[in-house]
Amino acid sequence: MANLKIKVGTLQLKNPVMTASGTFGYGTEYSDFMDISRIGGIVVKGTTLRDRQGNQYPRMAETPSGMLNAVGLQNKGMEYFINHIYPTVKNIDTNILVNLSGSTIEDYIEGAERLNELEKIPGIELNISCPNVKEGGMAFGTSCLSAAQVVKAVRRVYKNDIMVKLSPNVTDISEIALAVEAEGADSVSLINTLLGMAINSETRKPVLSTITGGLSGPAVKPIALRMVWQVAQAVKIPVVGMGGIMNATDAIEFILAGASAIQVGTANFIDPTVTIKVLDGINDYLERHKFSSVSDIIGAMEI
């Protein structure tokens, strides 16, 4: 058994396999299928200060090797999370991170302040990259100035780990990564979904109620891998890679590109046990290549 332990920012992960926000609910939805405490971390569904109904149906379109979604951060709000979800998820023996989103900087600050109260939440994933909301979300993550402003404001009030989730819908993702690093982010995670759209040619109507939505799945993997590599070159803080990871080989590619940990997203919908397969597969790879620790292969792509 190789050593799979890894430190990401201030987080101690038992292994580098995490789940991406919005694809793993609050973890408990998967407990019939697998032992959820085996994975390194769970990033819970995007949470906003106040409850959100999200966008109108239809919110999903299947595309070649992927899917578009336009959920729009449907969630029951921070108060509900604290009173009804936290009491259950705090007992899961892994790192539970809350994906925090907001329409204004004040929302982010207030949300982060509330999360300070929760002893068993070791960090937040700051979502400045949701493409499916009209206000906030991706708007913050597509300019260095606004990305830096949000991180700076949250850093001032939040005492635990801040992982900043970056948008790929930018000209140069490394610049954004450097801007959030400079304001005290502990790590960055990438990529959020790529903005896309689908049209039904028979009805001549858009498939999604919002016309555009976020593309995920294996279709985005080469782009995600390239961006993780670029960002890992640019910043000193750890990078958490995601985008179309379907198996251990995909996960290892991200680690070789420079990711300290990875998040499995859309694949959870197709195989609810995929995280365990990725985890076991990473261990098999390390043993087969005679690496004693997963940290030995971070950024180990040979050029």
Binding site: G22, T23, F24, G25, E29, Y30, K45, G54, Y57, P58, R59, M60, M67, N69, V71, Q74, T266, N268, F269, P272
Partner: peptide, 10 residues
């Protein structure tokens, strides 16, 4: 997408 309440698409 999922069928068990996590993707929130349906």
């Amino acid at each position: 997408a999922c069928g068990f309440g996590v993707c929130l698409c349906c």
